[in-house]
């Protein structure tokens, strides 16, 4: 499939899923009544559609784009199909940053918490690059990721348990598994600036990543500044994942599954994979968020549960393939 039709069909898929996301929820109104209420409908149903479901759908798209894009970019840069924000600990580190900021009294509706998520994510990425290195073994990457995830997760739990707020400890589930339940437009606006910055930086790195796929020397000879590229990938992924995690918690496997599924359709070129992975991530997160509402409409089943059900088999398959490839 050539590039434009694939992107168009992915965009159409995202649009259909976003519409479905708007129409599904415990209020149980019919689709026609719901759509009428969405545009200027007065009364409770209008409020449900505009203030509860619409920001949730928009946030699902933003979260998916951030995770899909970051996964594809990290895999292109590290040249390792196992690189993914959730698995290598960037999401967990971002969650730690956000949790520390919130418990320190930073308002959840300002730019402070996403910025703290960015700082946490930067720490995570930094550690991973230090531990695994570019083009290093998958084993080093995964072991480093396990260490960063475990440390960040433990510190997150510690901070939340030390909080004077008895409900903070219940939030451990949210920060480790992620959820989009009952978010508002305020959360969308809070996360958007940093996320958008991250997307722009990552998308612009596509050409350099193409060159890098031929090897470091070839890339350098083609005029790619490797130091600048690394900075772009690190900052872009940290901004996108940090802001996403600050409002939705750490959601794993999206950045692993989506590039894996799309690589066959777009070929090996990172510049082609990046936009496709962004749309694919949006479609996957929307699907998972619809699924959690269909399975348990009255409960806040975490997104991470759905993602792990899909993502873990893909992950095992990739591990198996790298082992066979040796």
């Amino acid at each position: 499939m050539s590039r434009a039709p694939l992107l168009l069909s992915l965009a159409a898929l995202v649009a259909v899923l976003a519409l479905a996301s708007l129409l599904i929820g415990p209020a149980g109104a019919g689709p026609v009544a719901s759509l009428k209420a969405l545009w200027g409908g007065e009364g409770p149903l209008g409020i449900v559609l505009r203030e509860i479901r619409a920001p949730r759908a928009v946030l699902a798209v933003m979260l998916g784009v951030s995770l899909g894009l970051s996964g594809a970019a990290l895999q292109g840069y590290l040249r390792n199909p196992l690189a993914e924000p959730g698995l290598i600990g960037i999401s967990a580190a971002a969650a730690l940053g956000a949790v520390i900021a919130i418990q320190a009294g930073v308002s959840t509706l300002g730019l402070g918490v996403p910025a703290a998520g960015l700082a946490g994510a930067l720490g995570g990425v930094g550690l991973i690059l230090l531990l695994a290195g570019r083009g290093g073994s998958g084993l080093g990457l995964i072991l480093g990721g396990i260490a960063v995830s475990a440390l960040a997760g433990a510190l997150t739990a510690l901070v939340l348990n030390l909080s004077p707020n008895p409900f903070a400890a219940y939030d451990i589930m949210f920060w480790t598994m992620g959820s989009l339940a009952d978010r508002s437009w305020a959360h969308v606006l809070t996360a958007l600036p940093l996320m958008g910055l991250g997307w722009a930086v990552l998308l612009r790195a596509g050409r350099d990543l193409d060159a890098l796929s031929l090897g470091e020397e070839a890339a350098a000879s083609m005029g790619v500044d490797l130091g600048a590229l690394r900075l772009k990938i690190v900052l872009g992924a940290a901004a996108a994942v940090g802001a996403a995690t600050a409002v939705a918690g750490a959601v794993g496997f999206v950045g692993l599954v989506v590039p894996h599924l799309l690589r066959g359709a777009v070929g090996a070129m990172p510049s082609r994979l990046l936009p496709a992975a962004a749309l694919g991530g949006a479609a996957l997160v929307l699907t998972a968020d619809i699924a959690v509402r269909l399975v348990m409409p009255e409960r806040d089943l975490k997104l991470g549960v759905m993602m792990a059900l899909v993502g873990a088999p893909v992950f095992l398959h990739l591990i198996w393939r790298t082992q066979v490839g040796k």
């Binding site: 449900v48 203030e51 509860i52 919130i102 409900f167 903070a168 949210f174 009952d182 508002s184």
Partner: peptide, 14 residues
């Protein structure tokens, strides 16, 4: 005191 995501629902703009 302190903050929690669990309590954010109480002040949801809806």
């Amino acid at each position: 005191p302190g903050a929690s995501r669990a309590e954010e629902i109480v002040t949801h703009p809806a």
